[in-house]
Amino acid sequence: MGKVYLVGAGPGAADLITVRGARLLATAGIVLHDALVEPEMLEHAPQARKVAVGKRCGQRSTAQQFINRQIVDAARRHAVVVRLKGGDPMLFGRADEEMRALEAAGIDYEVVPGITAALAGAASLQRSLTLRGVARSVALATHSRAADTEAIREQVKADSLVFYMGRDSAPEIAQQLLDAGRPGTTPVALVEACSTPRERTLTLTLAALAAGEAQTWLDPSQPSLLMIGEAFAERAQAAAGMTVQAGTAALQQAA
């Protein structure tokens, strides 16, 4: 039996993986990687067999049970197996299911953390997730399709909200937050393809997001983050190079 390493690839850029993660890629016999892992990241493992096993929201993808079997089978054939997961393995990455499958098979494993997209998004916007006197709490979330759940009410209590995998549901997310008491003037920053050469950012208000004003801007082929809260005001607009007028559909690209 080999050993499996669940490695966080970070937010996208190949040089934002940890030193430990890069070292493991360089020694792996096989790398089973997520769909969102950049091709440049795989250049850290020129000697390894690469197997794409990732899941993409709204697209045909590998079933999780089959991924689990592939990881277990790989450990029976290779001394070092890297399961390369976007961002950090322990955040919205189904790591628990893979760890349970490895434990059931009696296979040794280790988790190597990575930079999650929320942290990289804040760095790109040059805006802190926490801000003295403005934001003392942060919630990392995915969209709940329930109309009025306790989870939504709890999210409103956090000063800064970051929604993963929320592109298609952005207007619905915004409306739920408005219904739960968030002001329509609350700043929103969207970060797309964070830390990659394709990165783009956009700022607007929560009311404008609920009205669907960001949907034509968003690229369905790219991962995106919704970052909501007063901490993303002003400086996020300057970083985006855009201004958005609340309550209108006018998105003006700065020269």
Rank of each mutant, 00 (worst) to 15 (best):
Q237V: 09
S137N: 11
L91T: 08
G8W: 00
A122E: 00
R69F: 07
M1A: 14
K157F: 13
E43V: 11
P113L: 05
A207D: 06
A139C: 04
R153H: 13
A45Y: 05
Q65W: 14
D15F: 03
S169A: 15
C194E: 03
L102E: 12
H78N: 15
T185G: 10
A52M: 08
G8E: 02
L161H: 00
V156M: 02
T62E: 15
A239V: 12
A123G: 01
G133I: 09
I17Y: 02
A35I: 06
A246W: 07
V111D: 07
G247H: 03
L91N: 02
V111M: 10
D179T: 11
R94I: 09
V162W: 00
D96E: 14
G87F: 03
V7Q: 04
S144Q: 09
P197S: 04
F163L: 08
V72P: 03
A193I: 01
A74D: 00
A170C: 08
Q176F: 06
A236P: 06
A249Q: 14
L102I: 10
Y109A: 12
T243N: 14
R182W: 08
A180V: 02
R94C: 08
A250Q: 14
P171W: 01
Q222V: 11
F163G: 03
P46K: 06
P39S: 09
R49Q: 15
V156Q: 00
V51L: 09
Q126R: 15
E38S: 14
V112W: 00
P220W: 09
R153V: 05
Y109F: 15
L161G: 00
I71T: 06
A14S: 12
T62K: 14
D148K: 10
S128G: 15
A214R: 04
